[in-house]
């Protein structure tokens, strides 16, 4: 799926926006997310996942092709942590199953809100 297909979906489902307006709004959403992450701020989209930032220290690595040691400089990286709701949606399970699978020791305290479906706030 590409951005153009997301535009098509938003245009077809929402109504009231022209194709151009839909495209501009989707551009604005990803642009806003980029700017937010680009100023060092994490993003949490409930029901989808968290875009988290981490600072990595300089470390010694290796060129996997040649085995040659190389210095990996310090850097800030972005990673995505999928929401339990998204994981459940990909596996036709409910969130209770997902939480049980992810953290067997804490399942007793993790049942609140388990009946929500993906897309709920």
């Amino acid at each position: 799926m590409t951005k153009a297909e997301i535009v098509q979906s938003v245009y077809a489902r929402l109504g009231g926006f022209s194709k151009k307006e839909s495209a501009d709004l989707i551009e604005l959403v990803f642009e806003t997310m980029k700017e937010t992450l680009g100023r060092g701020e994490k993003i949490k989209i409930s029901g989808f996942g968290n875009f988290v930032l981490r600072d990595k220290r300089q470390r010694q690595g290796r060129n996997p092709q040649t085995g040659e040691p190389i210095l990996i400089t310090e850097r800030r990286v972005l990673s995505f942590k999928a929401s339990p709701l998204l994981k459940a949606a990909l596996n036709d399970r409910d969130v209770e199953d997902e939480q049980r699978a992810a953290a067997p020791a804490v399942v007793a305290v993790a049942v609140g809100g388990a009946a929500r479906s993906v897309g709920d706030p």
Binding site: G40, R54, D55, S83
Partner: peptide, 20 residues
């Protein structure tokens, strides 16, 4: 590159563990 360029600022936006 944008993210790496923000290294001079502290990371903001709360903790990582909050999910849902």
């Amino acid at each position: 590159e944008l993210v790496d360029g923000s290294r001079d600022r502290a990371i903001s936006g709360g903790d990582d563990e909050d999910d849902g």
